[in-house]
Amino acid sequence: MIKKLIARGYLVVLLVILYAPILIIAVFSFTEAKVLGNWTGFSTKLYESLFTGGLGNSMVRAIENTVSIGLLSAACSTVLGTVAAVGIHNMRRGKGRRAITFLNDIPMLNPDIITGISLFILFVAVGVTQGYATVLLAHISFCTPYVVLTVMPRLRSMNPNIYEAALDLGATPSQALWKVIIPQIRSSMLSGFILAFTLSIDDFAVTLFTKGNGGLETLSTYIYADARKGGLTPELRPLMTLIFLAVLALLTIINIRSARSKNNNR
């Protein structure tokens, strides 16, 4: 009994420490005080000033960039990754397949800073002006491997004869693709898309190195620039609260989806 209490207590203490900072930020996003910890009465002014005023403009633009880069890179990674997964799935085991799966693993194992610097050096060497396009390309390069890994297991569990059957029944390969393969892997493609989107909006290091100096900011580089000037400025509190809620929502969706697909497989 005492053992149980100690064990439970340990977990509770750890969870409190893990979540206290986020809770503190969320609570104090509803007051105007400059110094965190001072409570000067309930107010939603910080939330209002987030979306209006001089500060608001640059931040709204950062949010727009984050979302548009997230959606575009997730869409491109999903298409590229799905096509690649179908290809890899149909490759014979051998050098080619090993090479591509090895290369596919690199972006996932590489530390962000190395991925960022390596792409920065590439863009510099080629002479490309860095900005929106280079950030997008960088994000596609580190998101696609995750899409490939999400779609591959679904392909593996698919009955290969169904595709052949469609061809035997007179479907063209592209009809067989759209009417037979895609419907079966659609849900894992969607999971890959959401995963890629989450990774993209969450990224900081790679974006920082590939955004160039034309003034492009995403949310995380915006937060970094702001925090570097003066620590945790009051405006960041509502922003971080909103980001935390967004990540929580996305993760809940991903988890419900994966739980549901497990149930379907049974």
Binding site: V83, A99, I121
Partner: peptide, 20 residues
């Protein structure tokens, strides 16, 4: 259909292997 992996292979070489 194994050729479908080639565009991605080219992409990986250009944006993963080459930068490193």
């Amino acid at each position: 259909r194994s050729t479908w992996a080639y565009p991605y292979l080219v992409f990986l070489i250009l944006f993963v292997a080459l930068p490193l």
